[in-house]
Nucleic acid binder design. Structure first.
Length: 493
RNA sequence: GGCGGCGUAGCCAAGUGGUAAGGCAGAGGUCUGCAAAACCUUUAUUCAGCGGUUCAAAUCCGCUCGCCGCCUCCA
């Protein structure tokens, strides 16, 4: 089964056929760098990170371009508020973005261009558009004339007449048609400016993406992505500019991710109901956030809450616990040196072996179906259960059972590499997750260890009443004790 | 008003014609001095409602109800 992707342009899943066999070109609209990113940005970037990784995994030579919009009204406003220049603001939030994405474990795109490094390309496209009669200069600004491009609004499925009739569209006095949009904006005094044939100014919002994608991926390329909210007007305008200028199809597959909601409502700056990535990462592990994002299909809305993140953490913990158990088995020196003459697996072992054999085909099938990460995680969990059963059953590990367990370990590495998960050593992750949450409990680890020692003492003396008292005391404070043959450990409940 | 999406167990969530994955939470059991963890078993005769197409529908069509998004900057 081949990779199928949902194309916003056709409204259907289509078999992915790249322009050039074996290669894939992908452009994703990055952020406007005027503030810290919220978890909506986290979702969009994680989603396309997975798509990037999976395309590579599927064997494509991928060129992934993700831009920074580093010149824009909001950046200028912010700079004015702080009494500084736009560059200071842009550079600060580019750094912040990079830090956030690194923490979330994103692979770096092939190229991360900045709009302001491509003014030349932008001006060139605008000149072409004017030459071809698709754009006109008006008093220092340049506008794209939407009526000259018959396919306008084909992505969002709208109708130009009805949109023009809409009361909320104001007629800019310089525009010939209220739907025309700016390619170039003349600079007001004190604003950042670049030279152009139409006077000093700066690019409009949409044109930068046309210029940068063309520079790095050509006039026509495979995948263009972004959040659903970019479909109109941003992507619609990109299509108009690029196709009108180049006379050929701009993008083959348009991919759009769904929103992050708070109480079923879109998270956004204007509603003020957003959480920054940094805020969330103070409470939750980055991998937990990533796991949460992957637990739903990328096109569906997801509802963000502490509870849903808690559940994601519990689920991820289940997997990491299994991986830690695997590590222990694999790192332990082999207990039996005698090889059984005929070695065979128990029914539970055979079941695990079956899961192991089916794993990659099922994983690939899930990911091939429009990057169905939620289904892929389900497949992962089935292998976790089979592995837990097997580990619980086996008393002595033979070469055969060890190689089976090692195989499971490799499969988790392989899938983890695509999903950007399980990058930590399991024992370390579990320990870190536990101690991070220990900070939220009003008992110190030292006190806990002391109480555990006292309890062990009491239990040795068969004073179970005292022992249970200590256990219940800790439980009341949210500390759960875990007894094992190796001793007593603890975790935050 | 126009366009689009969604409604699956207590919660989250896969599933686009062949008889409901997975996770969390819950219940019972194994283990344990008792617990916890782990493991086992179990939890939707049913997919918002009503009609229709079909041998067969959560899946296709129509209508109704409810929620959300885009139409202005937004991942």
């Amino acid at each position: 089964m081949a990779l199928r992707v949902y194309n916003t342009l056709s409204g259907e899943k289509e078999i992915f056929v790249p322009q050039q066999p074996g290669k894939a070109g992908m452009y994703v609209c990055g952020v406007t760098v005027y503030d810290y990113c919220h978890i909506g940005h986290a979702r969009a970037n994680v989603v396309f990170d997975i798509i990037y990784r999976y395309l590579k995994y599927a064997g494509y030579d991928v060129t992934y371009v993700r831009n920074y919009t580093d010149i824009d009204d909001k950046i200028i406003n912010r700079a004015n508020q702080e009494g500084t220049d736009y560059r200071t603001i842009a550079d600060r939030y580019i750094r912040a973005f990079d830090e956030d994405m690194d923490r979330l474990g994103l692979a770096r795109p092939t190229v991360e261009p900045k709009a302001t490094d491509h003014i030349g390309g932008i001006v060139a496209i605008i000149e072409t558009l004017i030459e071809k009669g698709h754009a006109y200069a008006a008093d220092g600004d340049v506008y794209f004339a939407v009526e000259t491009y018959p396919d306008y609004l084909k992505l969002s499925g709208r109708n130009l007449e009805e949109m023009q009739a809409g009361a909320r569209v104001e007629v800019g006095e310089k525009k010939r048609n209220p739907m025309d949009f700016a390619l170039w904006k003349g600079s007001k005094p004190g604003e950042p400016r670049w030279e152009s044939p139409w006077g000093d100014g700066r690019p409009g919002w949409h044109i930068e993406c046309s210029a940068m994608s063309m520079k790095f991926l050509g006039k026509s390329f495979d995948i263009h992505g972004g959040g659903k909210d970019l479909i109109f007007p941003h992507h619609e305008n990109e299509i108009a500019q690029s196709e009108a200028a180049n006379g050929c199809r701009f993008v083959r597959y348009w991919l759009h991710n769904g929103f992050v909601n708070i109480n079923s409502e879109k998270m956004s700056k204007s509603l003020g109901n957003f959480f920054t990535i940094r805020e969330v990462l103070q409470k939750f592990d980055p991998e937990t956030l990533r796991f949460f994002i992957l637990s739903a299909h990328y096109r569906s809305p997801i509802d963000f809450s502490d509870q849903s993140l808690d559940e994601a953490r519990t689920g991820l913990e289940r997997i990491y616990s299994c991986l830690a158990a695997i590590d222990e088995v694999l790192n332990e020196p082999s207990t039996s040196n005698e090889l059984p003459a005929v070695e065979s697996l128990s029914p539970i072992g055979l079941e695990l072996q079956e899961k192991v054999e089916q794993f990659i085909p099922r994983f690939v099938e899930a990911m091939d179906d429009d990057f169905n990460t939620a289904l892929a995680l389900g497949v992962l969990f089935e292998m976790v259960r089979a592995t837990n059963r097997f580990l619980a059953e086996v008393k002595e590990f033979t070469p055969l059972s060890l190689s089976l367990v090692a195989h499971v370990s490799h499969l988790f590495d392989e899938a983890g590499g695509v999903l950007g998960l399980f990058t930590s050593r399991p024992a370390v992750w579990l320990e870190a997750s536990n101690s991070a949450r220990a900070g939220q409990v009003d008992v110190s680890p030292e006190e806990i260890e002391l109480l555990i020692a006292q309890r062990a003492e009491a239990r040795r003396a068969k004073d179970f009443t005292r022992g249970d008292e200590i256990r219940d005391l800790l439980l009341e404070k949210g500390i759960q004790l875990l007894d094992s043959a190796q001793g007593t450990s603890w975790k935050v409940k």
